[in-house]
Amino acid sequence: MIPAEFAEPAFTDPWHAQAFALTVHLSERGAFTWPDWAATFGAALAARRGVHGALDGGADYWAAWLAALETLLATRDMAAPGDVARMRDAWEAAYLATPHGAPVTL
């Protein structure tokens, strides 16, 4: 535990910010309530702790956040795991096929 009085960046990796914003936005649009989110996220943190041991609140925190979001969207039939996996692979292929510096599109 490091006492830190200095301003830390809110997000250390752009995808943390994206996952956070996606969750807040979906909640604001009524996709789920915040207590529902907190319960799912709490369970994801506990599951991750069971596998990886004590969490440090950094990258592992956001990994649990993303897992919780995927779970919540799957159980609410908003984003099926198969669809998400295919889309992930499509993006990966697009990055690998796009010359460095060019915009990556599907």
């Binding site: 979001l69 992930r88 990055y95 690998l96 096929a97």
Partner: peptide
């Protein structure tokens, strides 16, 4: 290194969620 730098696995998964939800009109 000719291709674009490949984002990490979680970054790709977030991007995938965004695309799927955008296509369904569930997010702005």
């Amino acid at each position: 290194h000719d291709h674009s730098v490949l984002p990490s696995d979680p970054a790709l998964r977030v991007k995938a969620l965004e695309t799927v939800l955008t296509q369904k009109g569930l997010i702005d």
